[in-house]
Amino acid sequence: MQYKLVINGKTLKGETTTKAVDAETAEKAFKQYANDNGVDGVWTYDDATKTFTVTE
């Protein structure tokens, strides 16, 4: 399945996608991506759209 990440950071904004077997695996990949880019915020997930959002 394909999952999307929407980033609403202080210095980084945008979107990225990943393919993963489940939401938990996608979340780990997205959190690593956010961490690598210095984004630390509040996470939400919408199962209907398979979209994670992180807001600083």
Rank of each mutant, 00 (worst) to 15 (best):
M1Q: 14
M1K: 12
M1S: 12
M1F: 14
M1R: 10
Q2T: 15
Q2S: 10
Q2D: 14
Q2K: 09
Y3M: 02
Y3W: 06
Y3C: 02
Y3F: 13
Y3G: 02
Y3L: 02
Y3S: 01
Y3I: 02
Y3R: 01
Y3V: 02
Y3H: 03
K4C: 08
K4T: 15
K4D: 03
K4M: 08
K4W: 13
K4V: 13
L5Y: 01
L5W: 01
L5N: 01
L5R: 00
L5D: 01
L5Q: 01
L5K: 01
V6P: 00
V6R: 06
V6L: 08
V6H: 05
V6Y: 07
V6K: 07
V6D: 03
V6N: 05
V6F: 06
I7V: 09
I7L: 08
I7K: 00
I7P: 01
I7C: 05
I7A: 03
I7F: 06
I7W: 08
N8P: 03
N8A: 09
N8W: 13
G9H: 08
G9W: 06
G9A: 10
G9C: 13
K10A: 12
K10L: 14
K10M: 11
K10R: 14
K10G: 10
K10H: 12
K10I: 14
T11D: 10
T11W: 14
T11M: 12
T11S: 12
T11C: 14
T11Y: 14
T11Q: 10
L12G: 08
L12H: 12
L12K: 11
L12A: 08
K13N: 09
K13M: 09
K13P: 06
K13S: 11
K13F: 12
K13I: 10
G14D: 09
G14Y: 15
G14Q: 14
G14R: 11
G14I: 15
G14S: 13
E15Q: 11
E15R: 07
E15I: 14
E15L: 11
E15S: 13
E15G: 10
E15T: 14
E15N: 08
T16Y: 15
T16S: 09
T16N: 06
T16R: 12
T16G: 05
T16P: 03
T17W: 15
T17I: 10
T17A: 08
T17R: 07
T17H: 11
T18L: 14
T18F: 13
T18I: 15
T18M: 15
T18G: 04
T18H: 08
K19Y: 15
K19F: 15
A20F: 09
A20I: 03
A20G: 04
A20D: 03
A20R: 03
A20C: 08
A20L: 03
V21M: 13
V21L: 13
V21R: 10
V21N: 13
V21F: 12
V21H: 13
V21G: 10
V21K: 14
V21I: 13
D22Q: 04
D22S: 10
D22M: 04
D22W: 03
A23Q: 12
A23D: 05
A23R: 15
A23G: 05
A23E: 07
A23N: 09
A23S: 09
E24A: 12
E24W: 11
E24I: 11
E24C: 12
E24R: 12
E24Q: 13
E24V: 13
E24F: 10
T25I: 07
T25H: 11
T25M: 12
T25V: 09
T25P: 02
T25Y: 06
T25E: 13
T25D: 08
T25A: 14
A26S: 02
A26T: 01
A26K: 00
A26R: 00
A26C: 02
E27F: 15
E27K: 12
E27C: 13
E27A: 11
E27Q: 10
K28A: 11
K28F: 09
K28N: 07
K28S: 08
K28H: 09
K28L: 11
A29R: 13
A29F: 15
A29S: 10
A29G: 05
A29P: 01
F30Y: 02
F30P: 00
F30R: 00
F30K: 00
F30W: 02
F30S: 00
F30Q: 00
F30L: 05
F30M: 03
F30D: 00
F30A: 01
K31A: 05
K31D: 02
K31S: 04
K31W: 06
K31G: 03
Q32P: 01
Q32L: 09
Q32F: 05
Q32Y: 05
Y33V: 05
Y33T: 03
Y33F: 13
Y33N: 02
Y33P: 00
A34L: 10
A34T: 08
A34Y: 03
A34E: 01
A34V: 10
A34Q: 01
A34R: 01
A34K: 01
A34N: 03
A34P: 01
N35W: 14
N35E: 14
N35S: 14
N35I: 14
N35C: 12
N35Y: 14
N35K: 15
N35R: 15
D36K: 10
D36T: 08
D36P: 01
D36N: 10
D36W: 06
D36G: 06
D36F: 07
N37T: 07
N37R: 15
N37E: 07
N37G: 05
G38Y: 05
G38A: 05
G38T: 04
G38I: 04
G38R: 07
G38L: 06
G38D: 07
G38N: 10
V39R: 02
V39D: 01
V39Q: 03
V39N: 03
V39T: 03
V39H: 04
V39L: 11
D40C: 12
D40F: 14
D40I: 13
D40T: 13
D40N: 14
D40R: 13
D40W: 12
D40A: 13
D40Q: 12
D40S: 13
G41M: 02
G41K: 01
G41Y: 03
G41H: 02
G41P: 01
V42D: 10
V42F: 10
V42L: 11
V42A: 09
V42Y: 08
W43T: 01
W43Q: 01
W43L: 03
W43V: 01
W43S: 00
T44K: 07
T44H: 11
T44N: 08
T44I: 07
T44L: 07
T44Y: 08
T44W: 08
Y45S: 02
Y45C: 01
Y45F: 08
Y45N: 00
D46P: 00
D46Q: 04
D46A: 04
D46G: 02
D46W: 03
D46F: 04
D46V: 05
D46I: 04
D46M: 04
D46R: 03
D46C: 08
D46L: 04
D47R: 06
D47F: 07
D47L: 06
D47E: 14
D47V: 10
D47I: 08
A48L: 11
A48Y: 09
A48S: 11
A48K: 11
A48I: 11
A48V: 11
A48G: 07
A48R: 10
T49Q: 06
T49R: 06
T49W: 04
K50L: 11
K50M: 10
K50T: 04
K50Y: 11
K50F: 10
K50A: 07
K50C: 06
K50D: 02
T51W: 02
T51E: 04
T51V: 06
T51P: 00
T51A: 03
T51G: 02
F52V: 01
F52E: 00
F52W: 06
F52G: 00
T53Q: 05
T53S: 06
T53W: 08
T53N: 05
T53I: 05
T53C: 06
V54H: 00
V54P: 00
V54Q: 00
V54M: 04
V54C: 07
V54T: 02
V54L: 09
V54F: 03
V54W: 02
T55D: 08
T55F: 07
T55N: 06
T55G: 03
T55Q: 06
T55A: 04
E56N: 05
E56K: 04
